[in-house]
Amino acid sequence: MRLSNSTLINYLAAEYALGTLRGAPRRWLEATAARNATLDTAILKWQGHLVTLDQTEATPAPEIWIAIERRLNWVPTAVAVVPSFWQRIGVWKAWSFAATVAAIALVIVILQKTPSIQPQEWHAFAVLESPQQQRIMVLASDDLMTLWFTTAQPLAIPAGKSYQLWWIAPNEAPVSVGLLPGANGGRITLQGTATEKSQYVALAISVEPAGGSPTGQPTGEVVFQGKLFNPT
């Protein structure tokens, strides 16, 4: 599709800036704007107009700026290579402190709202973080039978390897959840009842041979880890 009609360009730019243009058309317009100055200008003009609609201000917590600096590697982070699975999990505990505080707040929000949440809806379940601060957002269906993994950028899963997910319970061996379906995440159907899952406090991902760990326990590097927001 070529964009030459100025009314059409303006209309698409307006719908894009407003946010009502969604899905594939939105992505197509974004890609087109990157090489079409007329469209890019039209979008920016609309964004400039619409941004004046809402002049509310809310100052983010100071930790947010610190987190941004950390993600840009402007402040040193403690990265250590240690041999055991549990020690590797331990290294990440300090990093996840802020996330834990945030998680508690979210749990409160979710608990307050739980009575009116319908079955088969989703709630935020965990944020898994890598040593490079890449993140995977995990949603859970309210019946805890499905987990949904989403990433901002595709994961760099090595060729011939799989990312395997593990339930983590205190002082217990990790229990396999299954393989991450793809580099962009995906859904995993869970086994067992919510009560059976109540012992788990965290999720971790290790790199395993394609098809999963041959031993039933993590054998490769732990690449993502995060505490559950809302322990079952």
């Binding site: 800036a17 946010g19 974004e30 100055a37 890019d40 200008t41 979008i43 920016l44 003009k45 609309w46 964004q47 400039g48 107009h49 619409l50 941004v51």
Partner: peptide
Amino acid sequence: RGTALGWLSRIVRN
């Protein structure tokens, strides 16, 4: 092409 705040809001809103 447009104001700075418009440009920033585009990234944030996306």
